[in-house]
Amino acid sequence: MTAAPIVPTLKTPRGRSTTPNEGRTASLLLSPTFLVLALVILYPLLSAVYQSLFSAESGLDEQGFVVEGDVFVGLRNYLDIFAGSESGRFYNALWNTSFFTFVSVALETVIGVAFAVAMNRAFRGRGFLRAAVLVPWAIPTAVSGLLWRWVFQSNGIVNTLTGTQVLWTAEGFASQVAVITAEVWKTAPFIGLLVLAGMQIIPEEVYEAAKLDGANAWKQFWSITLPMVRPALLVAVLFRMLDSLRMFDLPFVLIGPRKESVETLSILAWESSNQLEYGTASAFSIILLLYVAAIAFVFIKLLGADVVGSGAERKQRKARPAAAKGVSR
């Protein structure tokens, strides 16, 4: 996850037709990769789908010992999730997951880009700042959850500094604010660094030309920097969204399990599996997978995030002369 690709520079031989023979060799050479992928991705996925069609039925015999067996229930696990007596919990978790994702990713993007702009300036201690910014990203999420729990506890530093008595780690909107704060603190640097990398490949002449044309800093940012880091930014945002939709450890550690206001889909899946209801847990995971896939699809379609880098070359070639004239695309 951390080693996210910035605009890949790999040149794909486009336009040149491949002979069938070459295609066969390519498939042959790639087959070990496909085999490994099938083993570590396809198989667990299919097995999860399969398992989600079963339910563990258990009862006690007259001596008080458990008699159990997996029963095929078809789509009943899904039906229960969407329309059963506990469906309210699912919709609440779905809402929380989406709410956390969109709010925190939006904040992270704004703050991350601001970081990148600041770090892109030449000043003393820039190297130090870049390293310092990475610290939150390097801290394991569970640890940062504990750290923020300590910050937000009732006699913690937040309440002391603001002179309030807000119960951040209990329930309600305050606890959602706590989770979002910690999440943004941790992951804004990730966006910042990816955007910074994108910024550093913008040639200096472009800015010089813009200055000659009398563009102020604000205009330069909107018309040059932002359009030119767009591919890197979109990939970073996409990665963050996919990551954030699976959010588990931060609310779990910072606020705790079974807290309605911060319960996410991953927490529901964890809880089912903890209670040995692997069928329901698999169903939750499959639903989450589909949801994540749908969001990613919409994101790529709407904003044209260039994940595989196929069009990067072409776009950059197009963007350069356009930006050189100081015109935004």
């Binding site: 399969y50 079963f54 258990s58 015999d61 010992f65 458990v66 008699v67 159990e68 067996g69 997996d70």
Partner: peptide
């Protein structure tokens, strides 16, 4: 695989 393993107790 799961068929054979599911008869607990």
């Amino acid at each position: 695989a799961s068929g054979s393993g599911s008869t607990g107790g």
